[in-house]
């Protein structure tokens, strides 16, 4: 028996939110990317419902361009915790002609995920999608609510959001609408890393320094994989010691040079870091309003 419970206000807030989701919605789902934020959500959900099992499945929208390490990690986690995992593939939407693959130097399947996600929401009639987005990540996300209502087309109307007062979360929706839920809205990147460190949460190996074949473009370090990432012939492949601060698709996630090979050195590196996390996300560089545009279209 422990006498004093030392409180992490952010953790307690997230647990409260996850319990509200389980209580207010019929078919919630946790959007799982295999990244550190969604892994953190899984741990928070374990805590929220212990000793009962996590009362919702995980949904992974697989672009087909994931790092193999992420997929292996996902499968091991699901196995270990006895979770239900639903996988839907962007490749299927491409094959069915619902979306068209981008081509050229900056081709990415990142935007294509939206269609697959919205299809999955419709297929399973999910009414709440729990995601690991944080308000500190990007300017447009700073205005996102904790319960964020999406219309039948998955669209976000940022000018008509419900006010959120005190701890009260209003999850009332019409049929066809769904709510995106962000339990770690108020966490910063460092908060997430510190939590992973303190809780000894396992994360995919690509978050730690490793040798990788990469090439340089626009000052960013891209992974070499000619099947998944477009590369000009003159872009020279070399081996470097790198790690990833954020894990999305291979085609839209840049690496950083780093020797940080374990969680302690990674946390220290983040602490003194001078490039924000999304600086390594190629998809945000397209324009200053890039994220806001994608969100209005239903992107997660």
């Amino acid at each position: 028996m422990k006498t004093t419970l030392s409180i992490n206000p952010l953790e307690n807030e997230a647990i409260y939110i996850l319990r509200e989701v389980a209580a207010q919605f019929e078919r919630p789902v946790l959007l799982f990317s295999g990244g550190k934020d969604s892994i953190t959500l899984v741990r928070l959900a374990q805590k929220a419902f212990y000793p009962a099992k996590i009362p919702f499945p995980l949904l992974h929208v697989d672009t087909g361009h994931n790092f193999p390490e992420t997929i292996a990690f996902r499968d091991a986690l699901v196995e270990e915790l006895g979770l239900e995992l639903i996988v839907r593939n962007v490749q299927d939407a491409i094959d069915e002609g619902k979306v068209v693959e981008e081509s050229g130097k900056y081709a990415s399947r990142n935007i294509l995920q939206t269609t697959t996600l919205l299809d999955a929401i419709e297929e399973f009639k999910f009414d709440a999608c729990i995601g690991g987005a944080r308000r500190d990540e990007e300017k447009a996300r700073a205005k996102e609510r904790i319960f964020s209502v999406r219309d039948d087309f998955g669209q976000w109307d940022e000018k008509n959001q419900r006010p959120e007062l005190f701890d009260m979360l209003n999850g009332q929706i019409e049929l066809g609408q769904n709510v995106r839920v962000f339990p770690i809205s108020n966490w910063t990147e460092l908060d997430v890393w510190s939590y992973i460190q303190k809780e000894k949460i396992e994360i995919p190996s690509i978050y730690f320094a490793h040798k990788r074949k990469v090439f340089l473009r626009d000052g960013l370090i891209w992974s070499f994989d000619d099947d998944k990432v477009y590369r000009d012939e003159e872009e020279i492949v070399e081996e470097r010691t790198v790690r990833f601060r954020t894990v999305g698709d291979m085609s839209c996630t840049a690496a950083v040079l780093s020797e940080a090979a374990d969680i302690d050195t990674v946390v220290e590196e983040i602490r003194v870091s001078t490039i924000s996390e999304r600086g390594a996300r190629i998809d945000d560089k397209r324009s200053e309003a890039a994220m806001e545009k994608r969100k209005q279209q239903g992107y997660f």
Binding site: M1, K2, T3, T4, L5, I7, N12, E13, K47, Y50
Partner: peptide, 13 residues
């Protein structure tokens, strides 16, 4: 979570 405590402090879930 999986630990028992003597006190549930204000603002704890």
């Amino acid at each position: 979570y999986n630990e028992k405590y003597d006190t549930a402090a204000r603002r704890s879930s």
